[in-house]
Nucleic acid binder design. Structure first.
Lengths: 140, 140
DNA sequence: CACTTATTGAAAATGATTTTCATTATCAAA
DNA sequence: TTTGATAATGAAAATCATTTTCAATAAGTG
């Protein structure tokens, strides 16, 4: 999904289109790795000097609310965000450069069914995330 | 693994055994759900009034370093800790009461192999976590 | 173009965590 | 045992991320 569509989404949900939002959206949507609010701020401010960090926080909040971005949980912290991708997707993170690959096709039904049996839980959701090295970092 | 063994682990790694550590270890080890530092503090202080919150933070830090506890990532926050369990385990969290069940037997090799092929990544680790309702909460 | 009100950035407030530091307690060695 | 070096403690201060407040500004409707 392209930056324009994120802006349209914002607009269709009653939010105004502002320069600050355009720049923040662009920075996050373009990034191949998860960005923290400060990182978004630093990147975005190169194109829009007057941008405030608070506005970054507020824009990320709205993008998350509209399911356009998601928070990424990592061993070193959980402040970064990346595009939510489309449909039911999971993340594969490069431990060296942070590059994120999306994947679907996780068929965990057999596993969850068996765990449900053993534990007595009714399972309704799962989080799956893979870590490794991307092709580039692997080569080094 | 029992509280005593955690204390032994601390000792064997050069840490002194103190009343504060005993109480914190007991609180965390006994808990069926993940506890935040403040929650540990509140529980532990019932048995040891003089305990400081800073000591809770410092003790949790050491327990994590020794792989006796692990941080639990949840939609609402990632500050809570629970026993690390034994060997390669994953968590199943009750979305109502927070009760945690451990499970192993996740055979993701087929999946990771296929993802590795598609993405070019070399996959070395995975996070898997299930959410649902425990038997008790399910009944309500 | 005018007007309503959502949005903005700065500053202050909050909440979680870490650091500093003087005091106290653990534990190894005498 | 008692002693002594020093690790551990709690309180207060410092730091860091995030949220709230508020007056000024800008978006978009009429």
């Amino acid at each position: 999904m392209a930056a324009d569509q994120w802006l349209t989404q914002l607009q269709e949900n009653g939010y105004r289109l502002t320069e600050a939002r355009r720049i923040v959206v662009e920075a996050v949507e373009k990034s191949a790795r998860a960005l923290t609010p400060i990182e978004v701020y630093d990147i975005a401010r190169k194109k829009y000097r007057a941008l405030g960090l608070v506005t970054v926080y507020r824009t990320l909040e709205k993008l998350e609310e509209l399911h356009l971005i998601q928070r990424v949980h990592q061993p070193l912290g959980c402040q970064a965000f990346i595009s939510a991708g489309e449909g039911h997707q999971h993340l594969l993170l490069c431990q060296n450069c942070g590059q994120v690959a999306f994947f679907e096709g996780d068929d965990l039904d057999v596993l969850t069914e068996s765990i449900a049996q053993k534990t007595g839980y009714q399972i309704s959701e799962h989080w799956l995330q893979l870590f490794g090295l991307c092709a580039n970092c692997r080569a080094d």
